[in-house]
């Protein structure tokens, strides 16, 4: 599945648009995807492709522009050298966490995180049980 196909599938799912109207050269204004809709789409794309969009989203004209943009970000992400010694890099974060005396994760990074782990959820409901 190409980047475009994946984005296309997301638009079909989230914006309930007919697939035949979604081609690479489809103008965004033709399918009424305004700047807010694009913001929403990019948010979903970030999760789907595990990327972080730039602070300012470019002014896309076509669906193909979005796909090209996402492909570039994915390529940039993949091109980034993997840190040789991740343990050393995580040290300052671990120190900060220790200073706060919190048992929370010491590996908070920029990468998107999944929703709360079941463990975390459990802890909050246990707190609730005590409150009652």
């Amino acid at each position: 599945m190409t980047t475009f196909d994946r984005i296309r599938a997301m638009i079909i799912r989230d914006f309930e648009l007919p697939p035949e109207r979604l081609q690479r050269d489809t103008l965004l204004e033709e399918i009424e995807l305004d700047s807010l809709a694009i913001t929403e789409l990019v948010f979903e794309i970030e999760d789907e492709f595990k990327i972080t969009a730039e602070n300012t989203i470019p002014r896309f004209k076509t669906l193909g522009d979005i796909a090209d943009y996402v492909a570039r970000l994915v390529a940039e992400r993949d091109a980034k050298p993997v840190p040789q010694r991740p343990a050393a890099k995580a040290k300052p974060a671990a120190k900060r966490a220790a200073a706060k005396a919190k048992p929370a994760s010491a590996t908070k990074g920029r990468a998107p995180k999944p929703a709360a782990s079941p463990g975390k959820r459990k802890r909050s409901s246990a707190r609730g049980a005590r409150a009652r």
Binding site: L36, T39, E40, F43, P112, K113, A116
Partner: peptide, 14 residues
């Protein structure tokens, strides 16, 4: 705060 995620919905302000 609860989920420790930075993924606030894009329309939260609006």
């Amino acid at each position: 705060y609860r989920d420790g995620s930075d993924r606030i919905k894009p329309f939260t302000v609006l």
